[in-house]
Simulated assay, not measured.
Amino acid sequence: MTQRTFADLHHADEPLLLPNAWDHASATALAAQGFRAIGTTSLAVAAAVGLPDGAAATREQTLLLALTLGSEPFRLSVDAEGGFSDDPDAVAEFARELHAVGAVGINLEDGLGAVDRHAAKIAAVRAAVPGLFVNARTDTHWLGDGEGTIRRLDAYRQAGAHGVFVPGLTDAREIAALVGHLGDVPLNVLYSPTGPSVPRLADLGVRRISLGSLLYRRALGAAVETATDIRAGRAPGGPAPTYEGIQALSRAAGGAGDATASSG
Rank of each mutant, 00 (worst) to 15 (best):
R157T: 15
G255W: 14
E81V: 05
D89Y: 06
A261E: 11
D13Y: 00
W22S: 11
G113Q: 09
A56L: 14
A56T: 06
L51I: 06
V179M: 03
V198I: 06
P73Q: 05
E244P: 07
A176G: 01
V179K: 10
D116F: 05
I122W: 00
D184N: 02
A219W: 12
T138M: 06
L18C: 04
A232N: 15
A120G: 07
V224N: 02
L249E: 07
P19K: 02
I230P: 07
D87M: 05
I230K: 07
G205C: 03
A103Q: 05
W22R: 13
D145M: 03
A56H: 11
R173K: 08
A261L: 09
A253I: 12
D116Y: 02
A222E: 15
L153W: 12
T62Y: 00
I209Q: 01
A48T: 13
H24K: 15
A119C: 07
G195R: 00
F94D: 13
G264I: 10
P236C: 01
R152Q: 03
A235R: 14
P193T: 04
T41K: 03
D171P: 02
A27V: 09
V101E: 10
P241T: 10
T68D: 14
T228Q: 14
S77R: 00
R36W: 00
L112K: 15
N135G: 08
R59S: 11
F133C: 15
V185E: 00
N188R: 11
A80W: 00
V125L: 06
V129N: 09
D86E: 11
G255S: 15
V78H: 02
R4T: 13
Y243K: 03
A120L: 11
L190R: 03
V166G: 02
T40S: 10
D154A: 14
N135I: 13
S197N: 06
D110Y: 02
R231L: 11
A7C: 12
A48W: 11
G183I: 10
N188Y: 08
E174C: 04
V45W: 03
R217S: 11
P199E: 03
S77W: 02
